[in-house]
Design a binder for these strands. Sequence first.
DNA 1: CTGTTAGCGCCTTCAA
DNA 2: TTGAAGGCGCTAACAG
Lengths: 359, 359
Amino acid sequence: MTPHATTETPAATPPAGVRTLGARATIHDVAAAAGVSVSTVSKVINERYGVAAKTAVRVQAAIAELGYESSLIASSLRRGRTNVIGVLVAGFEPFAHAVLEGISEALTDTGYELLAYSGSQASIDPEQSRRGWEQRSLSKLGGTLIDGAIVVTPSAESTQTSIPIVAIDPHTGTHGTPSIDTDNYGGGHSATRHLLDLGHTRIAHARGRTDLESARERERGYRAALTEAGVDIDESLIVDGEFRAEPTAEAVAALLDRDEPPTAIFAANDISALAAIGAARAGGLDVPGDLSVVGFDDIPAAVSGEPRLTTIRQPLRDMGRAAAETLLRLLAEPEATAPERLHMPIELIVRGSTAAPRK
Amino acid sequence: MTPHATTETPAATPPAGVRTLGARATIHDVAAAAGVSVSTVSKVINERYGVAAKTAVRVQAAIAELGYESSLIASSLRRGRTNVIGVLVAGFEPFAHAVLEGISEALTDTGYELLAYSGSQASIDPEQSRRGWEQRSLSKLGGTLIDGAIVVTPSAESTQTSIPIVAIDPHTGTHGTPSIDTDNYGGGHSATRHLLDLGHTRIAHARGRTDLESARERERGYRAALTEAGVDIDESLIVDGEFRAEPTAEAVAALLDRDEPPTAIFAANDISALAAIGAARAGGLDVPGDLSVVGFDDIPAAVSGEPRLTTIRQPLRDMGRAAAETLLRLLAEPEATAPERLHMPIELIVRGSTAAPRK
DNA sequence: CTGTTAGCGCCTTCAA
DNA sequence: TTGAAGGCGCTAACAG
């Protein structure tokens, strides 16, 4: 007997055991219900030629009645395509959200669906993190489930992929992977320039994780702006904040305790900037009266406190959109020249945490 | 010849055509590289008993060398489980984001991975939307790719599912599906009560989409608060905002144009509330001086303008967390009593858009 | 301990 | 115009 009941079996009704209540209908159920073979159903679904109109109608009816929807993974396994684009993220946090919105926008009406995947929610397993999380997710999903991927803030180079990939804000330089990031250098420059324009000259910098390119670029912008303005760089005013609150608060507190404290500080991200404000307050200082603070990112929390934070906004949505567009191009013409690096412009948002220094 | 080259074939090296540069390694590649059968590799991967230590080591080495990762979809097709939980969303917007964060939190260290899926990014296709988007996504992914699903703001009842499901903030009443939502009634009540406490009595309401249960509940809370305070309900002060900016702005403008305009308004969501503020300003009125405004949701934009919005905050993260926990329970004990409905408490956030009425 | 066999749900030749 | 057979990558039962 063949694996599945065919037209000629006594069962015009579904074979026994199939379609027990609540189970998903499969293509077999549809075939049985319509009294045709599985391959005919497949042809109808995929609008292939060679099906009698009358038969097609009967199959459509069965599909509608059973509420059948072809299984993404089964068809994916068989053919190469799924029309799904995967967004690989380390976690669902604000940065990823904003990027996702942009990607989602760009994908509207393209026929592609969106799938965001956050691999292993486990706390850092040294064993597993040897290869980057993105690499493992890619192997797991790639080749099949998704036609292309956008990787958000990957920690390592992505190699050996069978599907096109675009990286957003990679932590390290990329080799052949097209990538989108912000003009971190320009951001550091603008932030510092803003403080200079206000009249500050003793401007500190709470830099980010020096192992990340973004942090290094922001610092480079800071240095360049000072130099261009003819202000000597005082290395002792550059402290390590690591993009985190505690280290920044400590470092800033120490800075403000000195004989000739800075009158302004450029923090490598908003988290640090808010920590800096906290440290200044704890020392009895007023922001922006005694200390002007500029952040980077424009996270939601930047506007929820008082004063609201002057900061550098990254065009996260635009970055997502650009990444999606690049990926779509790669998908459309596989031989397209891939390697490119896009620097999106940043924007200085002036709010209440900066002011001219007291004379 | 058997489908796949076996140990005895002359090819100790991979069969021709396999592992062309950049392609994903399959279990066959690993088997060939290690000189064992495919099933042995499978046993090693899944830590089944019955593999000699020496063999296992050789296989592990091959896996490491090839960077092999088992394909999620292939194994998913074969066994029932994937250890992936799917979150089905209509789109990637702030509401969904916040919920996702909560879900993500709850899933940490549970061994489950997270996959957010937004079906068809196409603008509304009447043909397709006959069944809800969530129903179609469920059929596509269910049965295989995901072990369970959390559906965010589903528009219709989910039936016929083979996997456990939890709904968050369903638009309609649910039958058997466990669901989590906010205390919309309580929120409407608190918002209105706050205005009453400030001394307002002519309090308008820009209600939401009346086809949605959440909007109806908020209105019910509004009415109850007024009645409890002994304030007669003036039906002409209740206008339709549809949760959207334009209708609300128009309705509010008309309201403020009347002989005896309201001194306060409770808008069904923040979008409407911001529109109401805009309308008041356009009419030369001051907020909160001439008109107090309360919103609902506490979206990011609520704090980015001036004055910041007094609003009702929904515990979106908590809702996500609760949904994930419910789903995990269902997954752990399939026969668990499912049907339940959880109303999460809301919180009134008083900011600058409300004040006592001018005498 | 190892390999062969069958099949998850689907699509695509190829024959009838 | 239709259906039977094969196979995508993988796992589970069974046979050696």
